[in-house]
Simulated assay, not measured.
Amino acid sequence: MASGQTSSSASISSTASIIFPLCHCLQPTTLSISWTDANPGRRFFKCDVHGFLEWSDKDLPCQWQKRSLLEARDKIRRQAAEIKALREAFSTANAQLAAVEVNRSTGPNDDLLIHIEEIVKAQIIQSDKNIRNCVFFSCAGFFVATVVLLLLKI
């Protein structure tokens, strides 16, 4: 991996037929997946002390595979940002609802407060649905990309 780019990796749990090399410090290595722009989806061995050791898959991915993985990664990042924004909106709505509850106990405008409370609850329900949809579609997209790559490898 180039020194000027940021790196991201994920550990892999299914490693039945892979031989793990030892690091030069004689520590065992783990198998991870790179999510950098230059090497998306490439597997590599890493040492917990020293980091990157060597590539597990020696062949570079095809251009369309690389593009697909980068698009899937970017979509997941966008959806994660959207989930964060929805959570913040949910928190704000909860704070507004708490303020309505305080005002309800001190003010005579019960009908108006009930209407506002119903609107806020409806927004909270919609926010929850949006969060669930984002998580579902990001997982589905990642699953589809993974299945396509596995089928092409067979």
Rank of each mutant, 00 (worst) to 15 (best):
M1W: 00
M1T: 01
A2G: 10
S3I: 06
S3Q: 11
Q5G: 07
T6I: 02
T6Q: 08
S9I: 01
A10R: 13
S11W: 02
S11Q: 04
S13Y: 06
S14G: 09
A16M: 13
A16R: 11
S17L: 08
F20K: 12
F20L: 05
P21N: 01
P21Y: 03
P21M: 00
C25V: 02
L26K: 14
Q27V: 04
P28R: 08
P28A: 07
T29R: 00
T29F: 02
T30Q: 06
L31I: 10
S32N: 14
S34M: 04
T36L: 09
D37C: 05
A38Y: 08
P40S: 07
R42A: 00
D48L: 06
D48A: 13
G51H: 01
F52C: 01
L53A: 06
E54D: 05
W55R: 10
W55C: 07
S56T: 01
S56D: 05
D57W: 04
D57L: 04
K58M: 05
K58V: 14
L60D: 12
L60T: 06
P61Y: 02
Q63G: 09
W64L: 06
S68R: 10
L69T: 06
E71D: 08
D74K: 15
K75H: 10
I76H: 04
I76W: 08
I76M: 09
R77V: 15
Q79R: 14
A80C: 00
A81K: 15
A81H: 10
I83V: 15
K84N: 14
A85Q: 12
L86K: 07
E88R: 10
E88M: 13
A89K: 09
T92R: 11
A93S: 14
Q96L: 13
A99D: 15
V100H: 12
V100N: 11
E101M: 12
E101W: 05
E101Y: 13
N103K: 12
N103D: 14
R104N: 13
S105Y: 09
T106L: 12
G107L: 13
P108E: 07
P108C: 05
P108M: 02
N109Q: 15
L113I: 12
I114L: 14
H115E: 09
I119V: 12
K121Y: 13
Q126C: 06
I131F: 02
I131Y: 01
N133R: 08
C134G: 04
C134P: 01
F136Q: 15
F136R: 14
F137T: 13
S138W: 06
A140W: 06
V144F: 11
A145Y: 00
T146P: 03
T146L: 02
T146A: 07
V148C: 05
V148R: 11
L150I: 07
L150V: 12
K153C: 03
I154Y: 02
I154M: 03
I154D: 08
